[in-house]
């Protein structure tokens, strides 16, 4: 079913919208949730929450690009679930991912005002546009889709140890870019 048709169903408050969106994008969303949460039960709950949020947010929203919109919803729910579970040491995928992201945190004094998520997203997008396409793909696959490093190495045809070094350089590059823009976190 076309995305516009699915969104129309949401706007018409037709419950078939949930069936349609889960049939079309269930595997995509499940992969992201599974990569981040690493737990089947949490993954399924994250998916159910995703469909629930879609139902609540459309309308009033009308996503221009439904697939990445759903992926962003999944990531938002996943981090909340990870926080909820963290005291019990759950969610190994995100544990690793967040620890890697610490390399990207700009240095300097504590900010007077926390950077807005949207502002940070725009800065990261600007930095990504300056990078070679292959690096863009690697960064987004690892830190947006949450793909495990060994899987990413397979996808890219790069030995995993070399990929690890390359990802480290990418993280440091992002850190430098954020510092140049004087973005404090």
């Amino acid at each position: 079913m076309e995305d516009n048709r699915i969104i129309d169903l949401f706007w018409a408050r037709d419950e078939e919208a949930v069936s349609a969106v889960s049939a079309k994008y269930g595997p995509y969303c499940r992969t992201i949730a599974r990569n981040l949460l690493g737990n089947a039960e949490d993954t399924e709950e994250c998916l159910n929450d995703t469909w629930h949020q879609a139902w609540q947010r459309i309308p009033p929203q009308r996503p221009q690009h439904l697939k990445p919109w759903l992926g962003k919803v999944v990531r938002g729910i996943a981090i909340n679930r990870w926080n909820h579970n963290h005291a019990e040491k759950r969610g190994a995928g995100l544990d690793l991912l967040l620890s890697e992201l610490e390399d990207c945190i700009p240095g300097g004094a504590e900010p007077e005002k926390a950077v807005e998520d949207a502002e940070l997203g725009a800065a990261i997008s600007r930095w990504l546009r300056t990078m070679p396409q292959e690096d863009r793909v690697l960064f987004v696959r690892r830190y947006w889709h949450g793909v495990a490093l060994n899987t990413l190495a397979e996808e890219a045809g790069i030995p995993s140890n070399k990929l690890a070094q390359r990802m480290f350089r990418l993280r440091r590059s992002l850190r430098t870019a954020l510092e140049k823009e004087d973005i404090r976190i």
Binding site: P68, W69, H86, L101, D117, G121, I124, V137, V140
Partner: peptide, 23 residues
């Protein structure tokens, strides 16, 4: 967990759609 890393995660979540599509 470092809340700064989590902030970065939320920023990465908002990467532009066209980049996500390209990837």
């Amino acid at each position: 967990m470092n809340h700064k890393a989590e902030t970065l995660y939320r920023g990465i979540t908002l990467i532009d759609d066209d980049i996500l599509q390209e990837v």
